[in-house]
Design a protein around this nucleic acid. Structure first.
Lengths: 258, 258
DNA sequence: CGCTACGTTGATAGGGCTCAAGTAGCGTGG
DNA sequence: CCACGCTACTTGAGCCCTATCAACGTAGCG
Protein backbone atom coordinates (compact mmCIF):
# COMPACT_ATOMS: atom_id res chain seq x y z
CA UNK A 1 0.00 0.00 0.00
CA UNK A 2 0.90 3.67 -0.15
CA UNK A 3 3.22 4.79 -2.84
CA UNK A 4 6.13 2.83 -1.60
CA UNK A 5 7.15 2.23 -5.19
CA UNK A 6 10.38 0.78 -3.93
CA UNK A 7 10.37 -2.82 -4.89
CA UNK A 8 13.75 -3.35 -6.44
CA UNK A 9 15.45 -5.86 -4.23
CA UNK A 10 13.00 -6.31 -1.48
CA UNK A 11 14.14 -7.16 1.99
CA UNK A 12 17.57 -5.63 1.88
CA UNK A 13 19.48 -6.70 4.97
CA UNK A 14 20.37 -3.24 6.12
CA UNK A 15 19.78 -1.52 9.40
CA UNK A 16 18.02 1.83 9.45
CA UNK A 17 20.11 4.67 8.15
CA UNK A 18 20.09 8.30 9.26
CA UNK A 19 18.41 8.48 12.62
CA UNK A 20 15.46 10.82 12.63
CA UNK A 21 16.75 12.60 15.67
CA UNK A 22 20.39 13.39 16.14
CA UNK A 23 22.04 13.22 19.51
CA UNK A 24 22.56 16.33 21.57
CA UNK A 25 26.32 16.15 21.13
CA UNK A 26 25.95 15.92 17.36
CA UNK A 27 23.73 18.96 17.45
CA UNK A 28 26.28 20.81 19.49
CA UNK A 29 28.95 19.91 16.98
CA UNK A 30 26.78 21.13 14.10
CA UNK A 31 26.04 24.35 15.91
CA UNK A 32 29.74 24.89 16.43
CA UNK A 33 30.52 24.05 12.82
CA UNK A 34 28.04 26.61 11.56
CA UNK A 35 29.39 29.31 13.83
CA UNK A 36 33.00 28.68 12.86
CA UNK A 37 32.09 28.55 9.17
CA UNK A 38 30.47 31.94 9.40
CA UNK A 39 33.49 33.27 11.26
CA UNK A 40 35.86 31.91 8.69
CA UNK A 41 33.91 33.46 5.85
CA UNK A 42 33.76 36.82 7.56
CA UNK A 43 37.47 36.83 8.22
CA UNK A 44 38.68 35.53 4.88
CA UNK A 45 36.68 37.32 2.26
CA UNK A 46 34.91 40.61 1.78
CA UNK A 47 31.25 40.18 2.50
CA UNK A 48 28.41 42.53 1.94
CA UNK A 49 25.66 42.42 4.53
CA UNK A 50 22.10 42.99 3.53
CA UNK A 51 18.96 43.16 5.59
CA UNK A 52 15.96 41.67 3.87
CA UNK A 53 12.28 41.62 4.71
CA UNK A 54 9.65 39.09 3.90
CA UNK A 55 9.22 38.67 0.16
CA UNK A 56 12.51 40.30 -0.78
CA UNK A 57 14.49 38.54 -3.47
CA UNK A 58 18.06 37.59 -2.71
CA UNK A 59 18.55 36.77 -6.36
CA UNK A 60 16.34 35.90 -9.26
CA UNK A 61 16.31 33.24 -11.95
CA UNK A 62 17.78 34.40 -15.20
CA UNK A 63 19.96 37.08 -13.64
CA UNK A 64 23.69 36.90 -14.17
CA UNK A 65 25.54 35.02 -11.46
CA UNK A 66 28.44 36.71 -9.72
CA UNK A 67 27.90 36.13 -6.03
CA UNK A 68 27.10 33.43 -3.57
CA UNK A 69 24.99 34.14 -0.52
CA UNK A 70 25.11 32.93 3.04
CA UNK A 71 22.22 33.18 5.47
CA UNK A 72 23.17 34.91 8.67
CA UNK A 73 19.70 35.22 10.14
CA UNK A 74 16.17 34.55 8.95
CA UNK A 75 14.75 31.93 6.69
CA UNK A 76 14.68 31.74 2.93
CA UNK A 77 13.02 29.68 0.25
CA UNK A 78 14.59 28.68 -3.02
CA UNK A 79 12.04 28.58 -5.80
CA UNK A 80 12.30 27.11 -9.27
CA UNK A 81 9.95 28.17 -11.98
CA UNK A 82 8.79 24.93 -13.48
CA UNK A 83 8.05 24.38 -17.12
CA UNK A 84 4.83 26.32 -17.30
CA UNK A 85 5.86 29.12 -15.00
CA UNK A 86 4.40 27.81 -11.77
CA UNK A 87 6.67 27.98 -8.83
CA UNK A 88 8.12 24.99 -7.08
CA UNK A 89 9.91 25.39 -3.78
CA UNK A 90 13.02 23.25 -3.96
CA UNK A 91 14.78 24.11 -0.74
CA UNK A 92 14.54 26.00 2.53
CA UNK A 93 17.55 27.81 3.96
CA UNK A 94 18.49 28.74 7.49
CA UNK A 95 21.44 30.34 9.28
CA UNK A 96 24.71 29.11 7.89
CA UNK A 97 23.25 27.79 4.63
CA UNK A 98 24.57 28.93 1.30
CA UNK A 99 22.48 29.96 -1.66
CA UNK A 100 23.26 30.38 -5.33
CA UNK A 101 25.30 27.30 -6.13
CA UNK A 102 22.99 26.53 -9.02
CA UNK A 103 24.26 29.60 -10.84
CA UNK A 104 27.90 28.57 -10.99
CA UNK A 105 27.58 26.18 -13.91
CA UNK A 106 26.13 28.58 -16.46
CA UNK A 107 26.93 31.90 -14.79
CA UNK A 108 23.22 32.45 -14.49
CA UNK A 109 20.85 31.77 -11.61
CA UNK A 110 18.15 29.29 -12.46
CA UNK A 111 15.95 29.86 -9.45
CA UNK A 112 14.80 32.58 -7.10
CA UNK A 113 15.79 32.95 -3.48
CA UNK A 114 13.20 34.75 -1.39
CA UNK A 115 13.24 35.86 2.23
CA UNK A 116 10.42 34.36 4.28
CA UNK A 117 10.84 36.85 7.10
CA UNK A 118 13.19 39.58 8.17
CA UNK A 119 16.79 38.46 8.08
CA UNK A 120 20.32 39.14 7.02
CA UNK A 121 22.19 37.63 4.10
CA UNK A 122 25.79 38.03 3.21
CA UNK A 123 26.82 38.38 -0.42
CA UNK A 124 30.21 37.08 -1.41
CA UNK A 125 31.83 37.63 -4.75
CA UNK A 126 32.38 34.22 -6.25
CA UNK A 127 35.63 35.25 -7.91
CA UNK A 128 36.94 36.72 -4.67
CA UNK A 129 35.92 33.57 -2.88
CA UNK A 130 37.83 31.41 -5.33
CA UNK A 131 40.93 33.53 -4.91
CA UNK A 132 40.70 33.47 -1.15
CA UNK A 133 40.01 29.77 -1.25
CA UNK A 134 43.12 29.08 -3.29
CA UNK A 135 45.17 30.77 -0.59
CA UNK A 136 43.26 29.36 2.30
CA UNK A 137 42.34 25.68 2.02
CA UNK A 138 40.08 25.78 5.05
CA UNK A 139 37.84 28.28 3.33
CA UNK A 140 37.61 26.14 0.22
CA UNK A 141 36.84 23.15 2.38
CA UNK A 142 34.00 25.07 3.99
CA UNK A 143 32.60 25.90 0.59
CA UNK A 144 32.83 22.32 -0.62
CA UNK A 145 31.26 20.95 2.52
CA UNK A 146 28.34 23.30 2.03
CA UNK A 147 27.86 22.15 -1.57
CA UNK A 148 28.16 18.53 -0.54
CA UNK A 149 25.63 18.97 2.19
CA UNK A 150 23.24 20.65 -0.21
CA UNK A 151 23.45 17.71 -2.60
CA UNK A 152 22.79 15.27 0.21
CA UNK A 153 19.87 17.29 1.50
CA UNK A 154 18.27 17.61 -1.93
CA UNK A 155 18.40 13.86 -2.25
CA UNK A 156 16.72 13.54 1.10
CA UNK A 157 13.85 15.61 -0.22
CA UNK A 158 13.59 13.37 -3.25
CA UNK A 159 13.50 10.25 -1.11
CA UNK A 160 10.83 11.74 1.09
CA UNK A 161 8.64 12.67 -1.85
CA UNK A 162 9.21 9.34 -3.58
CA UNK A 163 8.61 7.02 -0.68
CA UNK A 164 6.39 8.58 1.97
CA UNK A 165 2.60 8.92 2.10
CA UNK A 166 1.21 12.38 2.78
CA UNK A 167 1.02 12.29 6.58
CA UNK A 168 4.50 10.87 6.95
CA UNK A 169 5.84 13.40 4.48
CA UNK A 170 4.49 16.24 6.59
CA UNK A 171 5.85 14.61 9.72
CA UNK A 172 9.22 14.21 8.03
CA UNK A 173 9.13 17.86 7.08
CA UNK A 174 8.59 18.82 10.70
CA UNK A 175 11.35 16.47 11.85
CA UNK A 176 13.75 18.02 9.40
CA UNK A 177 12.77 21.48 10.50
CA UNK A 178 13.34 20.56 14.11
CA UNK A 179 16.65 18.99 13.10
CA UNK A 180 17.69 22.22 11.42
CA UNK A 181 16.84 24.11 14.59
CA UNK A 182 18.76 21.62 16.70
CA UNK A 183 21.82 22.00 14.49
CA UNK A 184 21.71 25.69 15.27
CA UNK A 185 21.46 25.26 18.98
CA UNK A 186 17.81 26.24 19.19
CA UNK A 187 15.01 24.54 21.04
CA UNK A 188 13.26 21.90 18.99
CA UNK A 189 10.03 21.38 20.88
CA UNK A 190 8.44 24.36 19.22
CA UNK A 191 8.45 25.43 15.60
CA UNK A 192 6.81 28.40 13.94
CA UNK A 193 5.77 27.65 10.39
CA UNK A 194 6.73 30.71 8.46
CA UNK A 195 4.92 29.41 5.43
CA UNK A 196 1.35 28.89 4.37
CA UNK A 197 -0.16 25.44 3.92
CA UNK A 198 0.07 26.03 0.18
CA UNK A 199 3.80 26.60 0.41
CA UNK A 200 4.36 23.54 2.55
CA UNK A 201 2.29 21.49 0.15
CA UNK A 202 4.18 22.84 -2.81
CA UNK A 203 7.47 21.92 -1.21
CA UNK A 204 6.26 18.42 -0.38
CA UNK A 205 4.35 17.69 -3.56
CA UNK A 206 0.96 17.85 -1.86
CA UNK A 207 -2.06 20.13 -1.99
CA UNK A 208 -2.75 22.60 0.76
CA UNK A 209 -5.83 20.62 1.80
CA UNK A 210 -3.80 17.46 2.25
CA UNK A 211 -1.25 19.32 4.36
CA UNK A 212 -4.01 20.76 6.50
CA UNK A 213 -5.55 17.34 6.98
CA UNK A 214 -2.19 15.77 7.73
CA UNK A 215 -1.49 18.36 10.42
CA UNK A 216 -4.93 17.84 11.90
CA UNK A 217 -4.36 14.09 12.01
CA UNK A 218 -0.94 14.50 13.62
CA UNK A 219 -2.56 16.78 16.16
CA UNK A 220 -5.27 14.20 16.81
CA UNK A 221 -2.59 11.54 17.25
CA UNK A 222 -0.86 13.73 19.80
CA UNK A 223 2.32 13.93 17.74
CA UNK A 224 2.00 17.68 17.42
CA UNK A 225 0.03 20.38 19.22
CA UNK A 226 -1.15 23.69 17.84
CA UNK A 227 -0.37 26.50 20.21
CA UNK A 228 -1.81 29.58 18.49
CA UNK A 229 -5.12 30.31 16.86
CA UNK A 230 -3.60 30.80 13.43
CA UNK A 231 -2.22 27.28 13.68
CA UNK A 232 1.18 28.40 12.51
CA UNK A 233 3.04 27.76 15.69
CA UNK A 234 3.23 24.23 16.90
CA UNK A 235 4.56 22.24 19.76
CA UNK A 236 6.44 19.00 19.11
CA UNK A 237 6.07 17.07 22.35
CA UNK A 238 7.88 13.92 21.25
CA UNK A 239 10.34 14.20 18.39
CA UNK A 240 11.41 10.54 18.53
CA UNK A 241 7.77 9.48 18.22
CA UNK A 242 7.40 11.74 15.21
CA UNK A 243 10.45 10.14 13.66
CA UNK A 244 9.01 6.72 14.38
CA UNK A 245 5.82 7.76 12.62
CA UNK A 246 7.84 8.68 9.54
CA UNK A 247 9.55 5.32 9.59
CA UNK A 248 6.23 3.53 9.85
CA UNK A 249 5.22 5.31 6.67
CA UNK A 250 7.90 3.41 4.81
CA UNK A 251 7.24 0.04 6.37
CA UNK A 252 3.56 0.36 7.25
CA UNK A 253 2.85 -2.90 9.06
CA UNK A 254 5.73 -4.59 10.78
CA UNK A 255 7.82 -4.41 13.92
CA UNK A 256 6.23 -1.23 15.23
CA UNK A 257 6.98 -2.01 18.85
CA UNK A 258 9.05 -4.48 20.90
CA UNK B 1 -6.73 17.16 -11.47
CA UNK B 2 -3.47 15.26 -11.29
CA UNK B 3 -1.12 16.00 -8.49
CA UNK B 4 -0.34 19.47 -9.61
CA UNK B 5 -0.13 20.57 -6.00
CA UNK B 6 1.31 23.84 -7.16
CA UNK B 7 -1.15 26.48 -6.23
CA UNK B 8 0.90 29.11 -4.52
CA UNK B 9 0.47 32.18 -6.64
CA UNK B 10 -1.60 30.91 -9.46
CA UNK B 11 -1.24 32.36 -12.89
CA UNK B 12 2.33 33.53 -12.66
CA UNK B 13 3.13 35.67 -15.70
CA UNK B 14 6.13 33.71 -16.81
CA UNK B 15 6.90 32.03 -20.08
CA UNK B 16 7.93 28.39 -20.17
CA UNK B 17 11.37 27.76 -18.77
CA UNK B 18 13.92 25.13 -19.80
CA UNK B 19 13.04 23.90 -23.25
CA UNK B 20 12.52 20.16 -23.34
CA UNK B 21 14.80 19.84 -26.31
CA UNK B 22 18.02 21.77 -26.61
CA UNK B 23 19.26 23.07 -29.89
CA UNK B 24 21.87 21.19 -31.87
CA UNK B 25 24.48 23.89 -31.27
CA UNK B 26 23.89 23.76 -27.52
CA UNK B 27 24.37 20.03 -27.65
CA UNK B 28 27.60 20.47 -29.55
CA UNK B 29 28.79 22.92 -26.95
CA UNK B 30 27.93 20.50 -24.14
CA UNK B 31 29.67 17.68 -25.90
CA UNK B 32 32.76 19.83 -26.26
CA UNK B 33 32.59 20.93 -22.65
CA UNK B 34 32.49 17.35 -21.42
CA UNK B 35 35.41 16.33 -23.59
CA UNK B 36 37.57 19.26 -22.50
CA UNK B 37 36.67 18.69 -18.85
CA UNK B 38 37.82 15.11 -19.08
CA UNK B 39 41.01 16.22 -20.79
CA UNK B 40 41.68 18.80 -18.14
CA UNK B 41 41.22 16.30 -15.36
CA UNK B 42 43.48 13.77 -16.99
CA UNK B 43 46.21 16.32 -17.50
CA UNK B 44 46.05 18.05 -14.15
CA UNK B 45 45.72 15.32 -11.58
CA UNK B 46 46.68 11.72 -11.13
CA UNK B 47 43.73 9.53 -12.00
CA UNK B 48 43.28 5.86 -11.52
CA UNK B 49 41.30 4.12 -14.23
CA UNK B 50 39.08 1.23 -13.36
CA UNK B 51 36.98 -1.01 -15.55
CA UNK B 52 33.68 -2.00 -13.99
CA UNK B 53 31.01 -4.48 -14.98
CA UNK B 54 27.33 -4.45 -14.32
CA UNK B 55 26.58 -4.49 -10.62
CA UNK B 56 30.05 -3.44 -9.50
CA UNK B 57 30.16 -0.84 -6.78
CA UNK B 58 32.15 2.30 -7.40
CA UNK B 59 31.77 3.19 -3.75
CA UNK B 60 29.44 2.28 -0.95
CA UNK B 61 27.50 4.14 1.67
CA UNK B 62 29.23 4.24 5.02
CA UNK B 63 32.72 3.81 3.61
CA UNK B 64 35.29 6.50 4.26
CA UNK B 65 35.45 9.17 1.60
CA UNK B 66 38.78 9.94 0.00
CA UNK B 67 38.18 10.07 -3.71
CA UNK B 68 35.84 11.52 -6.23
CA UNK B 69 34.92 9.61 -9.37
CA UNK B 70 34.33 10.61 -12.94
CA UNK B 71 32.50 8.49 -15.48
CA UNK B 72 34.52 7.93 -18.60
CA UNK B 73 32.27 5.35 -20.20
CA UNK B 74 29.20 3.40 -19.19
CA UNK B 75 26.28 4.30 -17.04
CA UNK B 76 25.93 4.35 -13.28
CA UNK B 77 23.19 4.66 -10.73
CA UNK B 78 23.50 6.42 -7.41
CA UNK B 79 21.47 4.70 -4.74
CA UNK B 80 20.51 5.91 -1.29
CA UNK B 81 19.42 3.49 1.34
CA UNK B 82 16.33 5.06 2.75
CA UNK B 83 15.31 4.91 6.36
CA UNK B 84 14.25 1.28 6.45
CA UNK B 85 16.98 -0.03 4.21
CA UNK B 86 15.14 -0.03 0.92
CA UNK B 87 17.01 1.45 -1.93
CA UNK B 88 16.09 4.64 -3.69
CA UNK B 89 17.81 5.60 -6.91
CA UNK B 90 18.61 9.29 -6.63
CA UNK B 91 20.62 9.91 -9.78
CA UNK B 92 21.87 8.43 -13.01
CA UNK B 93 25.36 9.20 -14.25
CA UNK B 94 26.85 9.22 -17.74
CA UNK B 95 30.16 10.08 -19.35
CA UNK B 96 31.65 13.21 -17.85
CA UNK B 97 29.55 13.13 -14.71
CA UNK B 98 31.13 13.15 -11.28
CA UNK B 99 30.18 10.92 -8.40
CA UNK B 100 30.87 11.08 -4.70
CA UNK B 101 30.23 14.72 -3.86
CA UNK B 102 27.89 13.65 -1.10
CA UNK B 103 30.85 12.26 0.83
CA UNK B 104 32.79 15.49 1.12
CA UNK B 105 30.81 16.96 3.99
CA UNK B 106 31.28 14.19 6.51
CA UNK B 107 34.19 12.34 4.94
CA UNK B 108 31.89 9.40 4.49
CA UNK B 109 29.82 8.32 1.52
CA UNK B 110 26.12 8.27 2.18
CA UNK B 111 25.04 6.40 -0.90
CA UNK B 112 26.15 3.65 -3.25
CA UNK B 113 27.28 4.12 -6.81
CA UNK B 114 26.70 1.06 -8.98
CA UNK B 115 27.65 0.33 -12.58
CA UNK B 116 24.66 -0.47 -14.77
CA UNK B 117 26.80 -1.97 -17.52
CA UNK B 118 30.43 -2.32 -18.44
CA UNK B 119 32.26 0.95 -18.22
CA UNK B 120 35.28 2.87 -16.99
CA UNK B 121 35.47 5.21 -14.02
CA UNK B 122 38.33 7.38 -12.97
CA UNK B 123 39.17 7.76 -9.32
CA UNK B 124 40.68 11.02 -8.20
CA UNK B 125 42.10 11.67 -4.78
CA UNK B 126 40.11 14.52 -3.32
CA UNK B 127 43.11 15.97 -1.53
CA UNK B 128 45.20 15.86 -4.67
CA UNK B 129 42.37 17.46 -6.56
CA UNK B 130 42.19 20.32 -4.07
CA UNK B 131 45.92 20.90 -4.31
CA UNK B 132 45.87 20.84 -8.09
CA UNK B 133 42.83 23.08 -8.07
CA UNK B 134 44.56 25.66 -5.92
CA UNK B 135 47.30 25.89 -8.51
CA UNK B 136 45.06 25.65 -11.51
CA UNK B 137 41.86 27.70 -11.32
CA UNK B 138 40.41 26.13 -14.45
CA UNK B 139 40.41 22.73 -12.77
CA UNK B 140 38.67 24.08 -9.71
CA UNK B 141 36.16 25.79 -11.97
CA UNK B 142 35.45 22.46 -13.64
CA UNK B 143 34.85 20.85 -10.29
CA UNK B 144 32.53 23.59 -9.15
CA UNK B 145 30.58 23.56 -12.37
CA UNK B 146 30.05 19.84 -11.95
CA UNK B 147 28.76 20.28 -8.42
CA UNK B 148 26.55 23.16 -9.48
CA UNK B 149 25.11 21.14 -12.32
CA UNK B 150 24.43 18.25 -10.00
CA UNK B 151 22.48 20.49 -7.64
CA UNK B 152 20.44 21.87 -10.52
CA UNK B 153 19.76 18.41 -11.89
CA UNK B 154 18.66 17.03 -8.54
CA UNK B 155 16.18 19.86 -8.28
CA UNK B 156 14.89 19.01 -11.72
CA UNK B 157 14.14 15.50 -10.48
CA UNK B 158 12.29 16.89 -7.51
CA UNK B 159 10.19 19.15 -9.70
CA UNK B 160 9.34 16.28 -11.99
CA UNK B 161 8.26 14.05 -9.12
CA UNK B 162 6.33 16.84 -7.44
CA UNK B 163 4.42 18.17 -10.41
CA UNK B 164 3.99 15.55 -13.13
CA UNK B 165 1.47 12.72 -13.41
CA UNK B 166 2.83 9.26 -14.07
CA UNK B 167 2.80 9.24 -17.86
CA UNK B 168 4.38 12.65 -18.13
CA UNK B 169 6.98 11.68 -15.56
CA UNK B 170 8.02 8.71 -17.66
CA UNK B 171 8.02 10.88 -20.77
CA UNK B 172 10.15 13.45 -18.96
CA UNK B 173 12.53 10.72 -17.93
CA UNK B 174 12.95 9.68 -21.56
CA UNK B 175 13.40 13.30 -22.65
CA UNK B 176 16.10 13.80 -20.07
CA UNK B 177 17.82 10.62 -21.12
CA UNK B 178 17.75 11.71 -24.73
CA UNK B 179 19.05 15.09 -23.63
CA UNK B 180 21.94 13.45 -21.83
CA UNK B 181 22.75 11.52 -25.00
CA UNK B 182 22.53 14.67 -27.07
CA UNK B 183 24.93 16.47 -24.72
CA UNK B 184 27.42 13.72 -25.43
CA UNK B 185 27.10 13.91 -29.17
CA UNK B 186 25.11 10.70 -29.50
CA UNK B 187 21.98 10.04 -31.49
CA UNK B 188 18.81 10.74 -29.58
CA UNK B 189 16.18 8.94 -31.60
CA UNK B 190 17.00 5.64 -29.95
CA UNK B 191 17.58 4.81 -26.31
CA UNK B 192 18.35 1.51 -24.67
CA UNK B 193 16.93 1.30 -21.19
CA UNK B 194 19.65 -0.30 -19.15
CA UNK B 195 17.29 -0.62 -16.21
CA UNK B 196 14.28 -2.68 -15.32
CA UNK B 197 10.82 -1.20 -15.00
CA UNK B 198 11.22 -1.53 -11.25
CA UNK B 199 14.36 0.60 -11.31
CA UNK B 200 12.76 3.24 -13.48
CA UNK B 201 9.76 3.28 -11.19
CA UNK B 202 11.94 3.55 -8.16
CA UNK B 203 13.76 6.51 -9.65
CA UNK B 204 10.51 8.24 -10.59
CA UNK B 205 8.50 7.41 -7.49
CA UNK B 206 6.20 5.01 -9.33
CA UNK B 207 5.54 1.28 -9.27
CA UNK B 208 6.84 -0.95 -12.01
CA UNK B 209 3.28 -1.60 -13.21
CA UNK B 210 2.63 2.10 -13.62
CA UNK B 211 5.86 2.50 -15.60
CA UNK B 212 4.89 -0.40 -17.81
CA UNK B 213 1.46 1.05 -18.44
CA UNK B 214 2.87 4.51 -19.09
CA UNK B 215 5.27 3.13 -21.68
CA UNK B 216 2.45 1.17 -23.31
CA UNK B 217 0.33 4.29 -23.48
CA UNK B 218 3.18 6.36 -24.92
CA UNK B 219 3.63 3.61 -27.49
CA UNK B 220 -0.07 3.66 -28.30
CA UNK B 221 0.10 7.44 -28.69
CA UNK B 222 2.97 7.04 -31.12
CA UNK B 223 5.33 9.06 -28.94
CA UNK B 224 7.67 6.10 -28.54
CA UNK B 225 8.15 2.80 -30.37
CA UNK B 226 9.49 -0.45 -28.99
CA UNK B 227 12.09 -1.93 -31.28
CA UNK B 228 13.09 -5.17 -29.55
CA UNK B 229 11.11 -7.98 -28.07
CA UNK B 230 12.34 -7.38 -24.54
CA UNK B 231 10.97 -3.84 -24.82
CA UNK B 232 14.17 -2.38 -23.47
CA UNK B 233 15.24 -0.58 -26.58
CA UNK B 234 13.01 2.14 -27.84
CA UNK B 235 12.75 4.55 -30.68
CA UNK B 236 11.87 8.18 -30.03
CA UNK B 237 10.43 9.37 -33.32
CA UNK B 238 9.53 12.90 -32.21
CA UNK B 239 11.39 14.34 -29.26
CA UNK B 240 9.68 17.75 -29.42
CA UNK B 241 6.30 16.02 -29.29
CA UNK B 242 7.43 14.08 -26.25
CA UNK B 243 8.50 17.33 -24.61
CA UNK B 244 5.15 18.85 -25.45
CA UNK B 245 3.46 15.88 -23.81
CA UNK B 246 5.43 16.56 -20.64
CA UNK B 247 4.37 20.18 -20.67
CA UNK B 248 0.74 19.20 -21.10
CA UNK B 249 1.08 17.16 -17.94
CA UNK B 250 1.63 20.35 -15.98
CA UNK B 251 -1.15 22.36 -17.56
CA UNK B 252 -3.60 19.62 -18.50
CA UNK B 253 -6.43 21.54 -20.17
CA UNK B 254 -5.55 24.82 -21.76
CA UNK B 255 -3.73 26.21 -24.77
CA UNK B 256 -2.66 22.83 -26.10
CA UNK B 257 -2.65 24.03 -29.67
CA UNK B 258 -2.80 27.36 -31.52
C1' DC C 1 -17.37 45.91 9.52
C1' DG C 2 -16.70 44.22 5.14
C1' DC C 3 -12.71 42.49 2.68
C1' DT C 4 -9.10 39.44 1.94
C1' DA C 5 -5.97 35.81 3.05
C1' DC C 6 -5.48 31.71 5.34
C1' DG C 7 -6.96 27.44 7.36
C1' DT C 8 -10.28 23.53 8.10
C1' DT C 9 -13.38 20.09 6.84
C1' DG C 10 -16.65 17.35 3.95
C1' DA C 11 -18.03 14.97 -0.41
C1' DT C 12 -16.60 13.14 -4.54
C1' DA C 13 -13.76 11.43 -8.17
C1' DG C 14 -9.84 9.74 -10.18
C1' DG C 15 -4.94 8.40 -10.60
C1' DG C 16 -1.90 5.17 -9.25
C1' DC C 17 -0.99 1.26 -6.00
C1' DT C 18 -1.95 -3.52 -4.97
C1' DC C 19 -3.01 -8.04 -6.10
C1' DA C 20 -3.19 -11.40 -9.50
C1' DA C 21 -2.77 -13.87 -13.76
C1' DG C 22 -0.59 -14.52 -17.96
C1' DT C 23 3.22 -14.08 -21.57
C1' DA C 24 7.85 -13.92 -23.21
C1' DG C 25 12.95 -14.19 -23.19
C1' DC C 26 16.78 -16.69 -21.55
C1' DG C 27 19.83 -19.79 -19.14
C1' DT C 28 20.30 -24.53 -17.38
C1' DG C 29 20.21 -29.37 -17.30
C1' DG C 30 18.37 -33.66 -18.77
C1' DC D 1 16.20 -30.17 -28.42
C1' DC D 2 12.93 -29.37 -25.12
C1' DA D 3 11.34 -29.06 -20.37
C1' DC D 4 11.97 -26.26 -16.66
C1' DG D 5 12.65 -22.39 -13.78
C1' DC D 6 13.61 -17.72 -13.36
C1' DT D 7 13.29 -13.03 -14.29
C1' DA D 8 11.22 -9.36 -16.60
C1' DC D 9 7.22 -7.31 -18.65
C1' DT D 10 2.25 -6.69 -19.58
C1' DT D 11 -2.45 -6.31 -18.54
C1' DG D 12 -6.78 -6.48 -15.83
C1' DA D 13 -9.70 -5.67 -11.59
C1' DG D 14 -10.46 -3.38 -7.42
C1' DC D 15 -9.48 -0.20 -3.97
C1' DC D 16 -7.19 3.44 -1.46
C1' DC D 17 -4.97 7.78 -1.09
C1' DT D 18 -4.96 12.16 -2.39
C1' DA D 19 -6.58 15.82 -5.66
C1' DT D 20 -10.51 18.47 -6.59
C1' DC D 21 -14.48 21.14 -5.62
C1' DA D 22 -16.97 23.48 -2.30
C1' DA D 23 -18.51 25.51 1.97
C1' DC D 24 -17.36 27.51 6.09
C1' DG D 25 -14.70 29.61 10.05
C1' DT D 26 -11.26 32.85 11.57
C1' DA D 27 -7.61 36.47 11.88
C1' DG D 28 -5.93 40.68 10.40
C1' DC D 29 -6.67 45.09 8.37
C1' DG D 30 -8.17 49.15 5.99
Amino acid sequence: MFQTATRISDPSPMSPVRAAVATASEDQASSHRIATSLDRIRQSVAIQRRIVRQGDFVYQAGKAFAQLFVVNTGMFKVVNLSRDGREQIVALKYRGDWMGFDGIADHRHDCDAVAMDTGEVWSISYDALLQAGAREPALMATLHRAMSREIARDRGSLISVCTLPADARVADFLCNWAGALACRGLRTDQVTLRMTRAEIGNYLGLTLETVSRALSRLDREGLIRFVDKRRRELHLPDLPALGEFVRQGVEPVSQTLQ
